[in-house]
């Protein structure tokens, strides 16, 4: 943008922000759209105002005219939310009062994601649980569980799940995060609590002046041990990690006491 080009007015920003929040940017004036594509400053303003709107309790911008011409309300978001709640409530009620019919199974299918594999898996789950209506109707497979079923054939989903944190291991990492000499006073861990870097370039470091036999265990973010190494040196290369993702590692001394737990983000 050149200095001669004006920025959008506040009214333009507000209009664009509302369209952005509602997902109707294609209905925005072409002049504004072109400007936003070229001007970072105005684009940031629009994004910011749109975010404010979305967290605003009063996003349903009501304009109530107190004159005799009546009221103009924009309650579409409320109606949409209410409709969805009514539909969901009806579905749940129907499912509770009878065993699932083919129609209900079909409805359940259509409310799932569009991923065909997941729909196929969901089918199997419903049909196999047909005799147990409580389980069938009450249990909605969690997105993470559904995704795991198709993970073998869906490398795309694998990428996101590869970085999901493991609650138990995260808690361990936090415990050791501020104190790198928890146990095994002679051994001092140099690697930071969170180590990030590209594949094949990561290594773990510590000071092991007495050359104690140390065990290094590396876990996936699912809590499964990936590999274990024993060494009396001060470092270990992480060449056995073959794919990007989030991993955890533990350093254990010769008394089998855990000295440190950290995490590794492989890009």
């Amino acid at each position: 943008m050149t200095m001669n080009q004006m920025h959008l007015t506040e009214q333009d920003i507000a209009t664009a922000a509302e369209h952005l929040s509602k997902g109707t940017v294609d209905r925005l004036d072409q002049r504004i759209r072109t400007h936003l594509a070229e001007c970072d400053e105005c684009a940031n303003e629009v994004q910011f105002v749109s975010e404010l709107n979305q967290v605003d309790d009063a996003f349903i911008n009501t304009t109530i005219e107190t004159n005799n011409k009546g009221r103009t309300l924009n309650l579409r978001p409320l109606w949409a939310a209410a409709s969805i709640l009514i539909v969901l409530g009806s579905v749940y009620w129907l499912m509770n009062i009878s065993s699932p019919s083919e129609e209900q199974i079909a409805e359940e299918q259509t409310t799932q994601t569009t991923d065909k594999h997941i729909i196929a898996n969901n089918d199997q789950e419903v049909i196999s649980n047909k005799q147990d209506t409580t389980k069938t109707v009450a249990t909605q497979p969690k997105p993470a569980d559904k995704a795991k079923e198709v993970i073998v054939n869906k490398p795309v989903k694998r990428i996101t799940l590869a970085y999901a944190s493991n609650e138990e291991l995260e808690a361990l990492v936090k415990r050791f995060a501020n104190n790198t000499t928890m146990r095994g006073e002679a051994i001092k861990v140099i690697t930071p609590s969170t180590l990030a870097g590209p594949l094949n370039k990561l290594k773990l470091n510590w000071n092991n002046p007495d050359q104690q036999e140390l065990i290094i265990e590396v876990y996936t973010n699912k809590g499964e041990k990936l590999f274990e190494e024993t060494t009396s040196k001060n470092t270990v290369q992480l060449s056995k990690i073959k794919s990007p993702g989030l991993y955890y590692w533990k350093l254990i001394d010769e008394d089998f006491e855990m000295i440190f737990c950290g995490k590794i983000i492989v890009k």
């Binding site: 506040e10 507000a14 209009t15 922000a17 509302e18 303003e45 910011f48 105002v49 911008n61 924009n74």
Partner: peptide, 13 residues
């Protein structure tokens, strides 16, 4: 062209 709150946010921002 927009709600007044949105306009207010734009101005105040």
């Amino acid at each position: 062209k927009s709600g007044k709150n949105t306009y207010g946010y734009a101005v105040l921002n």
